[in-house]
């Protein structure tokens, strides 16, 4: 099939960008979206032009590197699919496709379709862990975890941290990402002990990184390639209230 692509080109963070038209010819249905871009890039290089820069690595939908907005939707319209796993059979001959980078205040463009997502890392650094040392831990079966809790924790832990949720949110909020991380650890007995400290630290970091507020649009869940549920946002809110209550009680007793 033949396609017309409109691709965001931007030389650097401080440059102005624009959409540029490219033709993609003889695209096979079996190609992935990124393989289609590879072919376009090969053509550009051969013609002495600069190829389009985009992030990718595993191409298996798990590393969270790939980050393209396809026709206005992060990772494209196919449900629960990263753009590296999106195949061209979902498009048809003659289609026009618009390809843009993640757009959010917290994600400055580095070049073309590559953005800086380090703000997400800083949320993690603030408290996205259980404070355990290497060594000296109990046997893996010493603390039993109900299947239900293990599964819920895993549902949250599946987040690949790609940032599609943030790119899809009209406010550029990192709520679903943070909620998934908070819920994963708070659901497990090992993570309960620090749950209150963690949720406060992570929500505070989130607020300080240029992400917007959550006003319950739920665009995040709709685009999440791993189907992370917004129920975890409710869980984060509950954890946060609980932490505030603990703090209030402690202060009153002091």
């Amino acid at each position: 099939m033949n396609l017309t692509l409109y691709i965001w080109r931007q030389k650097g963070p401080d440059e102005t960008g624009k959409m540029e038209r490219h033709d993609a010819r003889d695209v096979s249905r079996d190609m992935s979206f990124l393989e289609m871009l590879d072919v376009v890039n090969e053509g550009l290089v051969k013609n002495g032009k600069e190829p389009v820069a985009f992030d990718h690595d595993c191409r298996e939908g798990i590393c969270g590197m790939c980050s393209l907005v396809v026709n206005g939707v992060p990772h494209g319209r196919k449900e629960k699919t990263t753009v590296c796993q999106l195949h061209m059979r979902h498009f048809k001959d003659g289609d026009a496709i618009y390809i843009e980078p993640w757009r959010a205040r917290a994600f400055p463009v580095i070049k073309d379709l590559i953005v800086d997502r380090s703000a997400m890392e800083r949320i993690m650094y603030s408290g996205g862990y259980i404070s355990v040392h290497t060594g000296g831990v109990p046997d893996g079966n010493a603390v039993l975890i109900s299947k239900e809790d293990a599964e819920t924790a895993m549902d949250a832990a599946e987040c690949i941290g790609c940032g599609a949720c943030i790119a899809a949110c009209p406010n550029g909020s990192a709520m679903l990402f943070t909620a998934a991380k908070v819920s994963h650890l708070a659901t497990l007995p090992q993570g309960r002990i620090e749950a209150a400290v963690r949720v406060c630290a992570m929500t505070e970091a989130m607020a300080g990184q240029g992400f917007g507020n959550c006003s319950n649009h739920y665009e995040c869940e709709a685009v999440c390639p791993k189907g992370i549920s917004v129920k975890f946002i409710a869980k984060l809110n509950r954890e946060f209230m609980r932490a505030a209550f603990i703090k209030w009680k402690r202060e009153r007793n002091d």
Binding site: I130, D139, G140, N141, L144
Partner: peptide, 22 residues
């Protein structure tokens, strides 16, 4: 064996059976 214990302590949600065992 220590690796599994370490990962469980970090919060790695390994598959569990209905009684809660790995």
């Amino acid at each position: 064996s220590n690796i599994i214990d370490q990962c469980v302590a970090q919060g790695v949600p390994f598959a569990r059976d209905y009684a809660g065992y790995l």
